[in-house]
Amino acid sequence: MSSPLYEPSPLELERRAYRRSRARRSTVVALLSTLIFAVVAYLTVTNAPGWERTKATFFDVSYGWEVLPSILEGLWLNIRVLVVAAVCVVVVALALALLRTLRGPIFLPLRLLATVYTDLFRGMPLLIVLYLVGLGLPALRLDWIPTQAAVLGTIALVLTYSAYVAEVFRAGIEAVHPSQRAAARSLGLTHRQTMRMVVLPQAVRKVTPPLLNDFVALQKDVGLISVLGAVDAIRRAQIEVSQTFNFTPYVVAGLLFVLLAVPSARIADWVSNRAARRQQAGGLV
């Protein structure tokens, strides 16, 4: 805020100083209250009865370090499944959502199909889908059906999550004000062009936070492929636990999943803030 012609008045300088001092005070208050809370929490936990036993069974640090490489190797499988599943989910879900926006009697079967699909896979427990796809399909012994647990698990995840994400996309499409569609159509854009250039960009922006929320849910649920026998992070931890009856490997695997989720949450915040900053008139509210 500098201009060669403009010098702030003493009053404005005083106001700025006041705002700065308020900001400093807020920071100090936040730091202090956090610190006090942390100390109290630490003392409460470490003085609780049974803490030593709890620590040895769940938080055995040296054992945790020992199993970390093996669990990380398993996590690599989870990450690959996650990336492939996420990409497939976005494509399938977008297609489903667009099918449901089609107008005109000729598209009725497609609309119906998309509706039935989302109803079915949103309602069905993921575990059942996993069993049906992961254990049921290979039992058919057809040549073209893959047999790897990770691949089958990915298919099951995509089936279920596409149904959820399709509904998120559809909600976003419907949240775009009808006047936007009217404006685009009146410029002569077709339904498809309107969707692609005007409605979808706004819809995706509106639903970015819920989408990233579903992404985080998917990050955790990729661990479920272990029930099909895929050797992922959870499976590795399970193998360790069954040998030592110490639950630290589960905690390690769990924390790794949390670490995986944190960046997604921050990216979600960043994306929605940036969109708000760029498009809104700004100001105080």
Partner: peptide, 14 residues
């Protein structure tokens, strides 16, 4: 107008 309604913070003046 927005300054009067405090939707914007003025950079100087009263």
């Amino acid at each position: 107008m927005r300054c009067v309604n405090l939707l914007e913070v003025v950079d100087d003046g009263v």
